[in-house]
């Protein structure tokens, strides 16, 4: 693209880019500053952008609540959801890519219909279902409703369709069943699809809030996000501790993002060209 060339314009563009990036990063910086600011510096006017160091709030946060337990819950919930989404997604996606599967058009349509149902609209009946399954206030209850992701199915289907048919023919000549073909040949090749689905599931599950808020009472199954919200309720006036707790919650997902950044962005944008499902996988529903 030739637009906006010339040294002056390019420099101007870089300056604007820097400003925009700073605006987006600033709240994170501000939270970090608040969490380590000496108490006297929090409520000053104008705000002090570079106060001193005081790690007392961090100690306080860890004393105030069993964060280790909450993190463990979040990790178990996120990890098992990823595994289940991968299994259900790979199996269903593989079936939908099979030319010998009669009725795959119908099943595809049924899956597509699930996308038309906004999660918000079925919140209450989902709660009723969870109540009757006796999975309220449990970790299972935070995994099962998210164990299938239609977008994951579509991603796997799209991937398996790109595998050359000769691969399947050769496998059949060698006497392999469809199951062995899937397990030994197709899945190892599907690593990019597995990575995409894992990343998007991780980010959506780690950010899950409304559902766990509704179905958990007490500490026994509470994930980090809900714990943070309660902490805000009890300690809303303790800015420094609250800022430290927020950073604590943000850290895992931010780390994962920084490590896989390139891939992450591609995963989100990747669905743009696919007219069939017409929407990108929105990793977050909140």
């Amino acid at each position: 693209m030739r637009l906006g060339q010339g040294k002056g314009r390019r420099a101007l563009r870089t300056v604007f880019q820097a400003i925009v990036a700073l605006v987006f990063l600033f709240p994170f910086y501000w939270a970090m500053v608040l969490s380590v600011a000496p108490k006297s510096h929090v409520f000053t006017l104008p705000p002090d952008l570079l106060p001193g160091w005081d790690f007392h709030p961090w100690v306080q946060v860890f004393q105030a609540a069993p964060w280790g337990l909450y993190f463990l819950h979040s990790v178990i919930i996120t990890g098992s959801t990823i595994i289940l989404v991968l299994i259900t997604g790979a199996c269903a996606g593989y079936a939908l890519s099979l030319p010998t599967f009669r009725g795959r058009e119908i099943v595809f349509g049924i899956f597509l219909a699930a996308l038309m149902v906004p999660p918000e609209a079925i919140l209450i009946p989902d709660y009723v279902v969870a109540y009757h399954l006796h999975i309220l206030n449990s970790l299972r209850g935070q995994v099962l409703p998210f164990a299938v992701n239609v977008f994951a199915i579509f991603i796997f289907r799209q991937f398996f369709k790109t595998l050359p048919s000769e691969l399947w023919d050769a496998a059949q000549l060698d006497g392999a069943s469809w199951w062995r073909y899937l397990w030994n040949l197709a899945l190892p090749l599907a690593k990019p699809a597995v990575a995409t689905v894992s990343l998007l599931t991780f980010s959506s599950q780690w950010s899950q809030f409304q559902w766990p808020l509704i179905i958990t009472q007490g500490q026994s199954a509470r994930p980090v996000e809900v714990a943070l919200s309660y902490f805000q309720g009890f300690d809303g006036t303790h800015w420094r501790e609250l800022a430290a707790a927020s950073i604590l919650t943000l850290t895992p997902i931010v780390m994962v993002f920084l490590l896989t950044q390139r891939y992450f962005v591609v995963s989100v944008a990747g669905r743009v060209d696919d007219r069939e499902s017409s929407a990108p996988m929105t990793p977050l529903n909140r």
Binding site: S203, W206, F209, L228, Q232, L250, I253, F264
Partner: peptide
């Protein structure tokens, strides 16, 4: 990608 609860605080 950050949890809305944490950043909203």
């Amino acid at each position: 990608i950050t949890p809305a609860i944490a950043t909203s605080i």
